[in-house]
Design a protein around this nucleic acid. Structure first.
Lengths: 350, 350
DNA sequence: CTGAAAGCGCTAACAA
DNA sequence: TTGTTAGCGCTTTCAG
């Protein structure tokens, strides 16, 4: 293991070396690299041969410096903890590959104090655009991004701010469908554990629930709507509260799967059965939802596709150098598993 | 939304602007930026003030070009699908923050055909070093990396190749502990679902299991050891096979949690109870393991810490410009939950 | 302590 | 079709 303290590290051979070896000017080598049409086929072949032979890889920094773009996009996320984000990233990543971009990952680790600084450091790190998957209202970020006309896309954050480019899912419709499904199963006492109410998606889901209940002329007791925050433990606690109600609901609709898991645990801890005594529905359809016992009936969000779509929008904005407002809503889909009881069916008593 | 087609994008103000505004040469500005000691305090103050006022952020590419380093490290992973990787990344990310590096994410998406090309593109993208979390034998990668003396660290991949810098966990000891725990609970017929046997960690875990059985003079029936591949469905299938054995084991030790989940489902689908009829132990202690019913007893791997440690090693190698062989093994820890039955305790029959 | 200036490797405009 | 060359923004000698 030689300790080489030289400066330029792992591809010391440059465009000039290639040029010399191929017997052309280095401008020509540059043309070959960039697939310029103005190169004689013969020359192109020769240069390519030399590139391969020498193992030339090109210097990204130099290229970025002169071209003014890094071909890297930044992804800002709160944390890697949830499978939810992983699926979105997969979509981003796949799309980025076809667009030939690289992905720089930034996690806020919930340190909201540093919000403002993050954008600066994002920009400073030279990314060409940024995708934001943020739990809270990212107003501070957006303000700066917009004022700089810096390309960005918000994922799963529609509702609060209508101007920015964003991709989300049909939260209203998804919640509506889930609620109506429960109603069709014969449920009339349906509770809702909302998400954090400062998030647009939480509000949309609440509205979907309310609308479905209203459509079927069902009364909503005020105690049936409790505010959650997307955390499993909160789902547990709120479900406990719901279960202890005198007019106990027969079904609990949690605004995400994690809270639904918490609710399922709470139901079981009270010695009740799922779906025999209480039915549970979630939202997201993360991987674990198919693995619980019983499997969780939930609203599927097309997370991977959301990632892809966001990336497409961003790539387009980057190439056109302008932020285009407008948002895309991808359709959700109710996934039926075994956590809901059909009240008309006496066999299905969990 | 103005469509500005100019080239240099989002921080058009340069070191020269700052210099002019501050009335110094731009070399001095550079010194201030780089915390060079040779600057009069008064000058430093003034320059800093101008930097703030103008909102100067500096051009990463230019800096990288001249310094020969990007202050970015690459992370190569197979996929974001598992919580397992998320936890390692969290550790990497935290450590990187203190080291003031950025993280570029590359996923192979299991496309092993492109293995060789990945390293080239990693290097081409100008990262200063790379952390590899790879499921299969990364010999092809390592060869190239080594020949270039390119800093890298392998995470959770010890066993096959002993030379390279790597950080892992005490797989042997962890498996030994888990098996011995089962034995102490009174189990004598203990089955093992291995991981992919081309992986060092799988082999270590197998050895740990064998050693514990041997230590307690317990017979291992050949049918009790079945090869898995870390996938949940495989855990399900293999457990099914195990359950149907005439000399059915009373406990199943799965080489990771995902397979343990599969095994749990299989046990239940056969109308058997956990842990009443069959005890299950996993390996990893991913988040979900505490969420299943019953909670999964498993071997905790210090994933986050592994990420941190790997990053520290890499940062050191990058600064010293040499690959230092040697690997670190972080201790595992058995986490007791409710998926194992104490055979001496008649109450605990699940 | 500070200014001047030589590049880092590359793209792209201009000539030939 | 190809060569020449002016920078991109910055770090880092080398003088002073």
């Amino acid at each position: 293991m030689v300790n080489t303290k030289e400066k330029t590290p792992f591809s010391n051979i440059t465009i000039i070396d290639v040029a010399r070896e191929a017997g052309v000017s280095y401008g020509t080598v540059s043309r070959v690299i960039n697939d310029s049409p103005n190169v004689k086929e013969e020359t192109r072949e020769k240069v390519k041969e030399v590139i391969d032979r020498l193992g030339f890889v090109g210097n990204r920094s130099a290229r970025s410096l002169v071209s003014g773009k890094s071909h890297v996009i930044g992804l800002l996320i709160p944390d890697l903890g949830t499978a939810y984000i992983g699926e979105i990233i997969r979509g981003i990543d796949m799309e980025l590959e076809t667009a030939r971009y690289n992905l720089m990952l930034y996690t806020t680790h919930r340190r909201e104090t540093k919000e403002a600084g993050y954008i600066s450091s994002l920009i400073q790190s030279g990314v060409d655009g940024v995708i934001l998957i943020l739990p809270r209202n990212p107003a501070k970020y957006l303000e700066k991004l917009r004022s700089l006309n810096f390309p960005y896309v918000l994922v799963d954050h529609q509702g609060i701010d209508d101007r920015g480019p964003a991709v989300g899912a049909t939260n209203f419709q998804g919640a509506f469908d889930a609620t109506e499904y429960l109603i069709q199963l014969g449920h009339t006492r349906i509770a809702l554990i909302t998400g954090s109410m400062d998030l647009g998606c939480s509000q949309e889901r609440l509205k979907g629930y309310q609308e479905a209940m209203k459509k079927h002329a069902l009364q909503i007791e005020p105690e049936w709507i409790v505010e959650g925050d997307f955390e499993q433990t909160t789902g547990y606690e709120k479900a406990l509260k719901l279960i202890s109600l005198s007019n106990r609901p027969t079904a609990i609709f949690a605004s995400n799967d994690m809270m639904a898991f918490g609710a399922m645990n709470a139901v079981r801890d009270q010695g009740l059965k799922i779906p025999g005594d209480i039915s549970v529905v979630g939202f997201d359809d993360i991987f674990q939802s198919s693995q619980t016992m019983p499997g969780l009936t939930t609203v599927h969000q097309p997370l991977e596709q959301m990632g892809r779509e966001a990336t497409r929008m961003l790539v387009e904005m980057m190439s056109e150098r302008e932020i285009k407002p407008g948002k895309i809503e991808l359709p959700t889909r109710l996934v039926l598993r075994d956590s809901c009881r059909n009240l008309a069916d006496s066999r299905n008593n969990g």
